[in-house]
Design a protein around this nucleic acid. Structure first.
Lengths: 98, 98
DNA sequence: CTCGGACATCGACAGTCATCAATATCTACG
DNA sequence: CGTAGATATTGATGACTGTCGATGTCCGAG
């Protein structure tokens, strides 16, 4: 029976959840998080789905825009990495645990 | 570096997150969870927002449909309660903890 | 410099969503 | 029964979303 979250908190948390509230993006985050070194190349991510390359790129942009994924370009390839603290914060706020 | 979630898991988790991915619904869940006895009357929830009664009713329906809120009618009033196990499961899957 | 490949951006389209006003449903009370 | 209040449903509307094909941008190889 803790205090309800504030309207501000809700406004900040909602976009993060919205970004995660898609099967493709959930799997993207999950695959990246499970990858060696905690990061994955877009080329590999493309292969993991039956979707067009622009669509995957779009989903990655959504996740990156809300701060869930870090992006680093190395040569011709782009690598994404999960920002685990952000993910953990979301989980904590949802779970309502201390 | 655990295993990525399956496509099936993603398809099941996404609707729950989608239901939570709205500032109003986040606050609804939070207010209900923080209420005495773990449940809240719709009349009180209506007063907590600057939205029309049908809109609140709609949001409650969304949350109830995905199984995040329990619903019980007592007399003229309807009470909603948070299904904490469901919420906890979501948090766990997001956090990626065991 | 030019070419090819990796990734992003653009424009479009169909589908979904949040919100409201109006209306329906249900329940207690007289 | 008939009325009043609490909640749900309906229908409409403007905004947003996931997806694609086409195109743009950037980098390394030759």
């Amino acid at each position: 029976m803790r205090e309800p979250i504030s309207a501000d908190q809700a406004e900040r948390l909602a976009p993060l959840l919205k970004a995660l509230a898609d099967p493709v993006r959930l799997r993207l985050v999950s695959i990246v998080a499970a990858s060696e070194g905690g990061e994955a190349c877009v080329c590999d991510l493309n292969d993991a789905f039956d979707l067009s390359q622009p669509t995957i790129s779009h989903h990655l942009k959504v996740l990156h825009d809300v701060g869930l994924l870090d992006r680093s370009k190395r040569g011709v390839w782009v690598y994404y990495a999960v920002r685990r603290e952000v993910l953990a914060d979301v989980a904590t706020l949802i779970g309502g645990n201390a």
